[in-house]
Simulated assay, not measured.
Amino acid sequence: MKKILFTAAAVFALLHTQAQTIADSTGYKSRKLKFEEANLVSSYYQQDGNNAAVTGGIGSQKLTDIANVFDVKFYRYDKKFRKQTFTGEIGIDHYTSASSDRVDLKVNSSASHADTRFYPSVSWSVENENKGTTFTVGASSSTEFDYQSFGANVLFAKKTKNKNGEFSAKLQTYLDQVKLVTPIELRPAGGGRGDDYNYGTAARNTFAGSLSYAQIVNQKFHFALLADAVTQNGFLSLPFYRVYFKDGSVHQEKLPDARTKFPLGFRANYFLSDKFIIRTYYRYYTDNWGIQSNTANIEVPIKITPFISVAPFYRYYNQTASKYFAAYQTHTAANQYYTSNYDLSKFSSNFYGAGIRLVPPTGVFGLQHFSMLELRYGHYQKSIDMNANIISLNLKFK
């Protein structure tokens, strides 16, 4: 089943760094393909709550998810001395969900209670270090039982003359097919119960444009301005989400077939001293479904030794409710669109935790190419009786 759940991916993301330029005494840069780095991120996510959209906004939201993402980077210099970087990534998630198991209310456990998602991606980038330009193209896919997605992206970045500022523009598209897994009581008579039922599919398309500007003001202060515009069209509901009307009747979630989103963000890092960094982030979001939200994040990496640091973090989030949301047995036949998915309700949330990072000069555990180990833990809590925990391990090899 397609998962609609909180994710700490942005906080627990892969940590990429640039390799040093390789040049001999003549200034020649090698054109042979060379290994730059590899990253492995594994995480365990667990949540609980009482507002499952599969059962109309009530019921268990117990869910566990085990995710593993591995990427590898290679680079070379071409005849024009431009750095070309090739990146391949493979991700695999496996989850179990109490709410997804309730697509059929009459069985204790079904094939719907668990699923595995597989999502590979590739990218190629060309950096002209003299001109300060970077051009990147990429492609991705994601496959699970009820969802198939294909994505593509292109990015252009240009540094300022003094190399202290950088402007970037990115375009992304995702072309998806949603399997129309209907609650069993809403299927045609004689349609069958199992997950081998012929559900049919519907299209969902996403197009996004992003602009950003990053500036190094001085040795202590860096900031970035971020702006996005996202448009979606097609089947934007989730077909197995129930909505119970005031008269007790049950319906499939029904949402408009178009949505536009406009996030604006600001990121600032201040190097307080050799041992303390303050990282902050703020984002404002609005869309045409009536949701407005604010996100504020702070993280303070503290260097314990030259090779060990800890980083406590805190994120606060709030949002207004979508104009299409109402709780269990609240909607009526007068509503054109309706959902009881609490991800579209009014709520606030807190996410806090800490990470520890090891970067010994001789390599982690004395292994020279094992350059970094990071372990992070976070606790997430919504104001609508939902909480989650995530622990993540990031390993870097260079």
Rank of each mutant, 00 (worst) to 15 (best):
A13K: 10
A13N: 11
A13I: 04
L15N: 10
L15T: 15
H16I: 15
H16Q: 07
A19R: 12
A23L: 14
D24Y: 05
S25M: 14
T26H: 07
Y28A: 11
Y28K: 07
K29S: 08
K29I: 00
R31H: 11
K34E: 12
N39I: 07
L40M: 06
L40N: 12
S42H: 11
S43A: 00
Q46A: 02
G49R: 03
G49L: 12
G49T: 01
N50K: 12
N50S: 10
T55Y: 04
G57P: 13
G59K: 14
G59R: 08
K62V: 03
L63W: 05
T64D: 11
D65F: 07
A67P: 04
F70M: 08
V72T: 06
V72Q: 12
Y77P: 00
F81T: 13
F81K: 08
R82W: 01
R82E: 07
G88C: 08
E89C: 12
I90H: 05
I90Q: 03
G91T: 06
G91M: 07
H94G: 14
T96A: 11
T96F: 13
A98D: 05
A98Y: 01
A98Q: 03
S99E: 14
R102K: 02
D104I: 10
L105F: 08
S110D: 00
A111C: 03
H113Y: 15
T116H: 06
F118E: 06
F118V: 09
V122Y: 01
W124M: 05
S125D: 01
S125Q: 06
N128K: 05
E129S: 12
K131N: 05
